[in-house]
Design a protein around this nucleic acid. Structure first.
Lengths: 131, 131
DNA sequence: GCAATAATGTAATGTTATTACATCAATTGC
DNA sequence: GCAATTGATGTAATAACATTACATTATTGC
């Protein structure tokens, strides 16, 4: 998916997430953007939907929150499975990719003829500093 | 964790989940148990907390829903990482465990000195019948 | 029995996400 | 140009999921 030019709202949400230390909930984003004219949750959710579609943002299911993708390269191509470690102490989220896990999951789903559309891997715990 | 005798509410929630085809949200469980005297969400959430703690129930983060553990054996010991395939078509959830993935994740987290407390692996897609 | 602990009941509230509907802007086809 | 379509936006209301606070009842250990 080639990323099209972002709209005004999408840019605002993307910037908010990019400049944030950690993940943000949709409502936290909303609050950050009130000064920029945001009034309702839907403005955030609509922007997030697109950003997720473009692969610029990830949703953390276990937090009901969102983070900017940390991949440095462009988002023209799919990165396969994305996994996260999430520190309960400081909230730090680290994104990583692993070919071995990807292949193993692929083999397991193929064995049950399951057609994968989206894979969620989230590891909650404590980072080195917070252990 | 040795599973203690379940209380009345825990038993009701456990039975509701065990007899269900697929995952249920806390509020769906609440509705099912109104006839048995349940009036408020907290009654469900409290029971679920214990059942999760005992390992009798799993929470599906990407659905905000709960399923009975499908492991046949007793729950005296930890089963390590639990993963799920979740069919978007029929709602069927299949639980599985894989030593290889577990070890790979363990190696990756160890490399960043991350102390894992809970691992979520959920694969959304379509099962063979619904593909 | 009595104190301590665990479980329960109830109400209120907080948080996350969606539906419905109206308006506005950009693009396309003619 | 201009109607028609499409995509983005604005706003309100509501639905869905989860927790806090506080009172009461049941169970357990002594």
């Amino acid at each position: 998916m080639a990323t099209p030019q972002l709209t005004k709202n999408q840019t605002l949400v993307m910037d908010a997430l990019s400049h944030s230390e950690g993940p943000m909930s949709a409502y936290t984003i909303l609050d950050k953007l009130r000064d920029h004219g945001f009034r309702a949750p839907l403005q955030v959710y609509r922007a997030l939907d697109k950003l997720l579609e473009y692969g610029l943002v990830h949703r953390l299911e276990s937090l009901n929150a969102f983070v900017a993708c940390s991949c440095p390269h462009d988002h023209e191509h799919d990165h396969g499975v994305t996994a996260f470690t999430i520190c309960e102490g400081c909230g730090q989220v680290t994104e990583f990719h692993d070919e071995a896990i990807e292949q193993r999951l692929s083999a397991l789903t193929r064995a049950q003829s399951f057609k994968t559309e989206k894979t969620t891997i989230e590891i909650r715990g404590h980072c080195q500093s917070c252990a």
